[in-house]
Each structure stands twice: as C-alpha cells, then as structure tokens.
Design a protein around this nucleic acid. Structure first.
Lengths: 159, 159
DNA sequence: CTCTTTTAGTTGTAGCGTCAAGTAATTCAG
DNA sequence: CTGAATTACTTGACGCTACAACTAAAAGAG
C-alpha cells in the first residue's frame, strides 16, 4: 500500500538524470559505430561476445543470455550478420535443436577494426567524466539494479 | 594515440554492468506500462512532462528537448497520441510555424491512472535496491555523464 | 521590399525489435 | 517404447524510430 508513494526529492533528481542517460546513451553509441564501422551497437556487442570465446563460437541461447536479449531478436540479428558474412550458423552435433553461431575471419577483423573507435566513444561519454571513486560507485550501484532486473523478470508493479 | 587504450579491470566491470542495465531497463519499464496502462514508457514520459506544465501544454521543440528526443520521433508519437484522444495539436498564434501539444482531460486522467504503477516499477527496479548513499552517488555520476551526452553530441571517436 | 537563410514541424521510407505462432529435436511419464 | 511436454530456435507481421526530404513561416541581408 505504501508502495505507490512518489519519489523523494533526492530520488527524483537521480532518477531524472538516470532516465536521460538511458535515453541518450544507446543512440550515441549507435551513431559512432554506425558512422565509423557500419555496425549497430548491438551488432558490435554480439560479435564482441563471440570474439571472446574459444573458437569464436556460442550457442544461440547462451549468446542471448550473455547479451541480455531475447532469442527472436538475436536470431534476426545473426541472420543479418550471416548475410553480411560476419558469422556462420551451424547446427550443433550433440543437440540437433541447437545452433552454433561462429564468427568468421571477416567478422573477427570487423570487430577488431571497430573496437578502438567504440572504446574511444565509451571512454569519452562514460568513463572519462568519472574518477576512480565514481567508477567503483557505478559498479556497486549497477550491480544492485541488476539484482532486480536480471533474475525472474517479475517486473510486476506492486499494485 | 593513447586514446584507444582498453579499459582497466575496474572500468570494464562497471561498464559491463552499466550496459546490461541500459539494455534491460527500457524493456522492463515498457512492459509494466504496456501491460497495465497500454502505454509505452516514452508515451507515458511525454504525457507526464505535459502534465507538469501550467496549461498542460508545450511547444513541440520544447517538449522534444525536455524528453531528450528528436523532433521527428516526437511528431510521430504525438500524432498517435492525438489519434487516441490524449493530446491535441494547435498551431501557435504568436509563431505560426510552431505547434502546441496540449494534454486533453482524457490524457490527464490516463497519466494519473498510470502513475502509481509506473512509480512502483521504478521503485522496485531502480530505487529500492539502493540506499541513500547510492542515490546520492547515482545522482552525481549521471550528472557527470550527462555533461558529455547532452551538449553538442560530438560523439566523435577520438580516432 | 525582395531574396536568402534559418527555424519549426511534418511526412515517407527503410530497418530493427517484439510478440505470437510454428517447426523440429529431445526428454520425460507411464 | 509410445505419446506428451519441453527446449531451442526460426519465421512473419506489425509498430516504432531514425534519416532524409519536404513545407511553411519568420528573420536577416542588401
């Protein structure tokens, strides 16, 4: 019953700024990658995840978990990346329902080429304005939010 | 040349979590509002902005600034809200290029009805897991990021 | 005044994401 | 060992957003 109280002034101020950042950041990162590497941020992110695994390969489900997205979204995206020659999809031998997405040489080169510019954008927009204490605080705070956002997805308004 | 250095372990950890939150939060807020009020988060946000002004009315450009979005996006959205009877668009008398978006009674009632559930979702996912110090830190950190994200939009990868 | 430039907003198109439905393989129940 | 349920993904349709092009009004230059 008390759950529908409005936010305090301090909470409101932080929330307003946070929403603005969440609204602005994706477009900013997208714009840099789109312009310099012809990739969306999410395309880059997916390929970067693959590039960090041994064999540059992951099952779709595992990849969807690591990139915090839905399977349909990933499936569409990987289909497009495949069309562009950056990944291949191969049925898994152990479980023939499963699909392995694998980075091609061309895809690996693409990520490597895009990485410096992307890191630059992340540094410029996110990391640079922060000092060491800010970074530690950000890490702690985002960890706490993830505790709510990641698990069951029971978003439920407490009514 | 030194600007393309990768992130330190601490920076990387914070960045990873932050990206995950930025990826997950919009969908979470959208889902609650969509389910309980048949509104997207952005639709709610725009109407909430209008509801806070005297006269429940703002020029399109001003509204686009306060909601951190582009004019085309806002124009499309307001057109849809108008079709649903939540806002009206009226040419401005002083400057006939300009358009005033005004919340209707029905629109105002809609926001009021949706607010508690939305605040509940924000509390649950963002504010509740934080203590007072976290909130102050979040406010400070997001303010610093906004300093980069808001102004010129010169995202430029420092190359 | 007239012509150019800038400002304010709208509209069309193309691409991405979500939701619902469908397919196919595997596991589990009896 | 057969049928039902679950898992792993794919596909199609629809809605929203970005980008570019367009219209119209106001401001500025000469």
């Amino acid at each position: 019953m008390t759950s529908t109280e409005w936010l305090s002034a301090e909470e409101m101020s932080a929330w307003r700024k946070f929403v603005a950042v969440v609204e602005l950041l994706p477009g900013t990162l997208d714009a840099q990658l789109q312009r310099d590497a012809d990739l969306s941020h999410f395309e880059y992110f997916v390929m970067a995840m693959l590039s960090e695994t041994p064999g540059h390969s992951l099952r779709m489900t595992q990849l969807s978990i690591e990139t915090d997205t839905t399977l349909p979204r990933l499936s569409h995206l990987v289909a497009r990346l495949e069309k562009r020659g950056y990944v291949t999809r191969t049925p898994c031998v152990e479980d023939r329902r499963a699909t392995n997405a694998t980075l091609t040489t061309s895809g690996w080169e693409k990520v490597m080429a895009a990485a410096p510019g992307h890191v630059g954008a992340v540094r410029h927009n996110v990391i640079d304005p922060l000092d060491a204490r800010d970074v530690a605080d950000l890490d702690r705070i985002m960890g706490r939010m993830l505790g709510r956002l990641e698990p069951g997805g029971r978003v439920g308004a407490p009514r």
